[in-house]
Write a protein that binds this DNA or RNA. Structure first.
Length: 613
DNA sequence: CGCGTTTGACCGGCGC
DNA sequence: GCGCCGGTCAAACGCG
């Protein structure tokens, strides 16, 4: 954890010219996000830079008195003060440099590990596609996944290798092959954006195939990149051809994000075009329908509606997966929603009663809301009554959809967690104690309804106080009231005191990762998100970290790769910093993430558009 | 004039 | 079969 903090500080040190650091949102343009993060880092951690700046402030504050009619003695004392300041400054510099050296070494290690992970993923993906090809050669004329016809709504499961009810008992004696398959599936989730082709997973259970959403993973059979909305699919089916290639009854995963936001829409970095508006029953607020216009054939749609109970809550429901590279600023939301959708479906897979003993996230999610990094996942699926529940009853879910709700509307000033949140924490903390402590918040830039993003300095995107754009942006932050977070703060203040729990945490996480494919996919997604952030943020693709492409396995899906994999960098960031090497040399945040500034190069068109909505 | 939004009409699914 | 409802379409409209 403190490693991440150090790294962030170091990175900022490296990236920013000195003297700029004191500005808080003075320039909320290109580097607004970075500034926000940096500021937060500096607020919380006793970083040398912060001290330097404070020292500078002291010194500069002393200057006016010096220029005035000052006596000699006072001048001397002032000079002494200067000397002492200089001395302490040098000490600070030395310690900082030493720290930087350590961090660099650590970064190198992390890079190495990262590269190894990438390599592993690639090799596994290669194996995976070999398997796919072999199977396709075996049964080229067999009916494709359509048989998935989920007549029984409960039959929502992924071919993650955890599906068969009889398999779990054998998990402990898994062969290497099965482990490989599992890993492959994890990478599949990463690369295919949680879409699993029926015959591709190597498991041959009927009904275990579920394509998450629009099936542009099969561009060869369909119009490339143009998945069909359900109605059109049905229309098409009625026309009588290509039934085989369609998956009309496959559930789509929808990710609903509840966030407090005064702005008409949340800025998720994507370009959206409104194509309809409807007043839905039960909610006086109209529901707006948006299409992604980044690519003409992008199937992603979103619905935006205000919560009837609390008009300050904006409910944004995403559906589909982008079939194009995303703007950097959009990868966060895409990653998050993808990961959430992935977890939704993988959770359904893991919901089998024979789930392993380890309380993996997906397993927990089957019985309660999952709070991953403070993300309050509540799964709704008409198909699985009793397993998930819809957190927001005003958002009715279509039977053909499974919806996962990310509730980011935690009361900003409350000292107690919502019941579902703590409920999850109690379950999940055994696995990843820190995960539940990372707030994942959307903050509205204009409204000050969410003080958390400002007060928590862990990763608070979107709190640009000087930003005038009334758009909510994606933010990640911690709940200040969270005790775990407080402990983290303490650690950050005392970075040289590693706690024994860190190792055990890493072990636990490792166990969780290795035991749960979905969780692994999310972790891998984090890597993707990070890498994408870095690649875009620095304008380079250094270290070959186009993870979405590297990790995405399916050539047909290559267009969906960047930042679009089943990624949840923000879901797993905290974990990544504590246990996984993926951060490597990565600069921390995604630049201009959800920054609705008109100066923002990457997000401004979107923002402007969304502003007008 | 082009682009995006608005808004009424239309369509299909679903329940009764 | 009918009506309700959610979702989409597309012409009209507004804006820069």
């Amino acid at each position: 954890m403190e490693v991440a903090l150090k790294r962030a500080v170091v990175v900022e040190e490296e990236r920013r010219p000195k003297g700029v650091g004191d500005e808080e949102g003075g320039e909320t343009g290109k580097f607004g996000t970075e500034t926000a993060i940096k500021d937060q880092d500096f607020q919380k951690s006793p970083s040398p830079n912060a001290k330097d700046s404070s020292i500078n402030k002291e010194a500069s504050a002393a200057n006016p008195s010096e220029s005035s009619s000052m006596h000699t003695s006072s001048k001397r004392s002032c000079l002494n003060l200067r000397d002492s300041i200089t001395m302490s400054k040098e000490d600070q510099l030395k310690s900082t440099k030493a720290e930087m050296g350590e961090v660099r070494e650590e970064n190198e290690k992390l890079k190495t590990t990262l590269a190894r992970i990438v390599k592993d993923y690639q090799s596994l993906q290669m194996q995976f596609f070999d398997i796919i090809q072999q199977e396709q050669e075996k049964k080229p004329t067999e009916t494709p996944p359509v048989p998935i016809e989920v007549e029984e709504p409960e039959l929502v499961s992924l071919s993650l290798g955890t599906s068969s009810s009889g398999h779990k008992k054998e998990e402990k004696v898994k062969t290497n092959k099965s482990k490989e398959n599992e890993q492959i599936e994890g990478s599949l989730a990463l690369g295919l954006d949680c879409k699993f082709k029926g015959s591709s997973t190597g498991t041959k259970e009927p009904g275990s195939n579920l394509s998450l959403e629009d099936s542009f993973e099969e561009p060869k059979e369909e119009e490339p990149g143009e998945p069909w909305p359900p109605s059109k699919v049905l229309k098409h089916l009625r026309n009588g051809d290509e039934e085989v290639s369609q998956q009309p009854h496959v559930k789509k995963a929808r990710v609903s994000v509840r966030a407090r936001c005064d702005a008409p829409t949340m800025n998720d970095g994507c370009q959206w075009r409104k194509y309809g508006q409807k007043v839905a029953k039960g909610n006086p607020c109209p529901r707006a329908y948006y299409r992604c216009t980044v690519a003409p054939a992008c199937p992603v749609r979103k619905q935006v509606q205000r919560c009837a109970e609390d008009m300050s809550i904006l409910i944004t429901t995403y559906e589909g997966t982008h079939n194009h590279p995303l703007p950097i600023s959009a990868t966060a939301m895409a990653s998050t929603t993808s990961a959430a959708a992935c977890m939704l479906l993988s959770g359904s897979s893991a919901s089998r009663p024979t789930i392993g003993s380890l309380a993996t996230p997906s397993a927990v999610m089957t019985t309660s809301n999952a709070n991953l990094h403070g993300l309050n996942f509540s799964l709704s699926g008409n198909s699985r009554p009793g397993q998930f529940y819809l957190q927001n009853p005003s958002m009715s879910s279509n039977p053909s959809y499974s919806t996962i709700t990310l509730d980011l509307t935690a009361p900003p000033s409350s000292t107690s967690q919502p019941s579902h949140l703590s409920m999850f924490s109690s379950n999940f903390a055994t696995c990843t104690p820190r995960h539940s402590s990372t707030g994942f918040s959307f903050s509205c830039l204009e409204s000050h309804a969410i003080p958390t993003s400002r007060s928590n300095n862990y990763l608070g995107y979107g709190s640009q106080p000087y930003n005038k754009s009334p758009i909510c942006s994606l933010g990640l932050g911690r709940q200040p009231q969270d005790p775990l977070y407080q402990s983290y703060l303490n650690k950050a203040a005392n970075p040289s005191a590693p706690t024994p729990s860190q190792n055990s945490l890493a072990d636990t996480i490792a166990k969780a990762i290795t035991s749960d494919p979905s969780f692994r996919s999310v972790v891998a997604a984090a890597i993707t998100s990070y890498a994408g952030a870095q690649a875009g943020g620095k304008g380079t693709q250094g270290h070959g970290l186009i993870w979405g492409e590297q990790l995405s396995s399916a050539p047909p899906c290559s267009s969906t790769a960047t930042g679009n994999g089943c990624a949840s960098g923000y879901l797993t960031r905290s974990m990544a910093s504590s246990s996984s090497p993926q951060q490597g040399n990565l600069t921390f945040p995604q630049p201009s993430l959800g920054l609705p500034t008109s100066k923002s190069a990457s997000a401004s068109p979107v923002d402007n558009r969304e502003n007008t909505n």
